[in-house]
């Protein structure tokens, strides 16, 4: 696998779309390309952020935040 193919696979990898047989080959290439591979994979995670930002925000109920903060405070006290 050359680096261009690795880049294509990386974008599939970050969204969990590699098939099991592709994953093994991908991990081998990931080791082969080392730091360069890790840096590229990190960049690919920007896709996650972009897909989330492409959606219109949905407001959560205020009770959710109250429950969350109560749980956090309770956890801090223990």
């Amino acid at each position: 696998m050359n680096f261009s193919e690795f880049q294509n696979r990386s974008r599939l990898y970050v969204i969990g779309a590699l098939e099991p047989e592709e994953l093994e080959e991908f991990e081998k290439a990931r080791k082969k390309f080392g730091k360069k591979a890790e840096e590229f994979i990190t960049k690919c995670y920007a896709l996650h952020e972009a897909f989330a930002l492409s959606l219109r925000p949905a407001k959560a109920s205020t009770a959710i935040k109250e429950r969350l903060m109560a749980m956090v405070r309770a956890k801090k006290e223990t």
């Binding site: 959606l55 925000p57 959710i64």
Partner: peptide, 28 residues
């Protein structure tokens, strides 16, 4: 960020009440 994350969860599970519960779990 709750609005962005809730929208994402809702897009996956399509259920308002379940999305709220999951949002709380995720922030925890």
């Amino acid at each position: 960020y709750n609005g962005i994350l809730k929208a994402l969860i809702l897009r996956v599970i399509h259920n308002e009440a379940e999305a709220d519960d999951l949002l709380q779990e995720i922030f925890m």
